[in-house]
């Protein structure tokens, strides 16, 4: 069971459906394993668009719903810039949790 979910290099409308499936599978494993703090590896993201950010928004919502804290691990500059641009800079804080992400 991977403790950290590695985001792909491309997080866009073209990959969103596939990444969503992978995330759902991974989330199921985390829930079963009783993970309290999820890590999202984001060092490799070099192409992200609105659909990619929306996917992260849905992930954030879902983790909050499951009362699971989470954080980005080594977010790339592309990811940081996109989060800041579209008003989601809170995700870049050390730990977004049930309270922080809600």
């Amino acid at each position: 069971m991977a403790e950290c979910f590695e985001l792909p290099a491309e997080l866009t409308i073209y990959t969103a459906a596939e990444v969503r499936q992978l995330l759902l599978t991974w989330l199921g494993e985390q829930e079963a394993g009783g993970t309290e703090v999820a890590a999202i590896g984001a060092s490799g993201v070099n192409d992200i668009d609105g659909a990619g950010l929306q996917l992260l928004g849905a992930l954030s919502q879902t983790l909050a719903h499951q009362a699971m804290a989470w954080h980005f691990r080594n977010p790339s500059n592309a990811l940081i810039e996109a989060c800041q641009t579209l008003g989601s800079a809170a995700w870049l804080l050390p730990t977004s949790g049930a309270g922080a992400a809600a």
Binding site: A16, R20, L27, A51, Q54, L55, G57, L59, Q61
Partner: peptide, 21 residues
């Protein structure tokens, strides 16, 4: 700037190609 996160559905029901931003 702020993005309305509450408008984004949970992952389980999200259609990732429909925009909810």
């Amino acid at each position: 700037i702020s993005c309305d996160q509450s408008a984004i559905p949970l992952l389980q029901v999200l259609d990732p190609e429909s925009c909810n931003l």
